[in-house]
């Protein structure tokens, strides 16, 4: 049987900070492409067949 490895406090903290950083980057990308789409297409983005 293998013994499970328990993360040290430092490893847990750094993993949490990395996760937050990745989340922030992903949210920024979503906002970036959302704003870019609005600017590129303008109000015409709503003028589409539903």
């Amino acid at each position: 049987m293998n013994e499970l490895y328990e993360l040290t406090t430092k490893q847990k903290k750094s993993r949490r900070r990395r996760s937050i950083a990745i989340a922030l980057v992903l949210v920024s990308l979503v906002v970036l492409f959302y704003v870019a789409t609005i600017i590129k297409f303008g109000p015409a983005i709503l003028a589409r067949p539903l």
Partner: peptide, 12 residues
């Protein structure tokens, strides 16, 4: 050890 199996302590 933890380091050998690649458990990272890297910060952003």
């Amino acid at each position: 050890t933890g380091a050998e199996i690649g458990l990272s302590e890297a910060d952003p």
